[in-house]
Computed example of a mutant assay.
Amino acid sequence: MNSRRIDRIATVIFWSGALAVIFFLGAIIGYILYHGGKYIDWGFLTKPSQAISAGGGIGPQIFNTFYLLLLSMSITIPIGLLAGVYLSEYAGTNKLTEAIRLSIETLNSLPSIVVGLFGLLVFVNMTGWGYSLISGALALTVLNLPFMIRITEVSIRGVPDGLREGSLALGANHWQTICRVVLPAAFPGLISGVVITCGRVFEEAAALLFTAGMASPAMNFNQWNIFSGSSPLNPFRPAETLAVHIWKINAEGLIPDLRRVADGSAAVLILFVLGFNLTARWLGRRIHRKMTAT
């Protein structure tokens, strides 16, 4: 068998694998949207859930999901970015950095249920915060931080050395080279890491069951005092996210319109993840073009 035929066979195999992934992904998304899309309307997106009567919605769960995303990523992104820059640009090759990388890889492989139990012990019980948004955000930070550090390090190491050498040759110092040359060049990889990390926040349920809780108190959206118990911005209140809500109503089955809420919630979650990914990548490309002037 000559090399041209081998190349054609390999190309067919690769294309078949890619098409199979697209097919199964499209089938899953289509199935969820077909069964849940018909239940989505303005009332479903804004009303609170009803435990007794039918006709409830997922308004508080949507707000809790995005608020938790904001809290978690505001911690994960800065720490992950700084740690990735240190490991790729400043840390040498020694036993300490090898131990750090081993710890990152180990944490990155931890099941989310283990992180949830750790969060229950530390962020819920030891701090005295109880089930709260801040406990859930910190647990998700523990879950996502190793991945963010790793993707930052890999993206920065992928920048050609010629760009660094050219910047240093023009008189820039190391920190200026990192901020003005290396990070803009690594920006697409960083955006991919942020998008994947945010997607994990959207879909996570196991860790939040033990930290953020499975119930949301009545929220007054006219009360913006962050220290008020009824304020939606209070990070120390318990909060049920959309993924936890889907698990809860399917596990307990206490509401009369179970199927409508479950299917509709799953469809909304899929649409949010798709919309967030597309928007983040579009915004990332625009920012990258402005930063690199291409």
Rank of each mutant, 00 (worst) to 15 (best):
G17M: 02
P232F: 01
L283Q: 13
T241L: 07
F44I: 00
E153M: 07
R259D: 01
E105H: 14
L19I: 14
G37A: 02
V273K: 06
M219H: 05
S167E: 06
V261C: 12
D257W: 03
W175H: 07
K47T: 02
S88L: 05
I249T: 05
L82P: 12
A185I: 07
V115S: 02
T292P: 06
F24I: 11
L269M: 04
S230Q: 13
G229C: 00
M214R: 13
S230N: 12
P146D: 01
L102M: 12
F202W: 03
E252N: 13
G162K: 06
A186Q: 03
A18N: 04
A10G: 09
A251E: 07
V142M: 13
A280V: 10
T294Q: 14
R259N: 12
S3G: 04
I29D: 07
T211H: 05
A239C: 06
W247I: 01
V201N: 01
G92F: 04
V122S: 07
L258N: 11
A262G: 10
A20G: 04
P232Q: 09
F66Q: 06
I52S: 01
P235T: 02
N173D: 12
M73W: 11
S49C: 05
A212G: 05
G171F: 02
L133Y: 10
I75H: 04
L143D: 04
T279Q: 04
A185D: 07
L71M: 08
L209Y: 06
E98C: 10
Y90L: 07
N234H: 04
L163G: 12
R180T: 12
L145N: 02
A266H: 00
A218G: 13
P232R: 03
Y131T: 03
L254R: 13
Y86I: 14
L120D: 08
L68A: 01
G284F: 04
L70Q: 08
G37L: 02
S53A: 14
F227L: 10
L102I: 14
I13S: 12
Y67Q: 02
G199T: 02
A207G: 09
H174Q: 15
I22L: 15
H35R: 15
L133R: 13
L117Q: 06
R164C: 01
A206T: 00
A186F: 05
D41V: 09
V181Q: 08
N277L: 09
S53P: 10
F44H: 04
E204D: 09
A91W: 05
C179P: 01
N173T: 07
R281P: 11
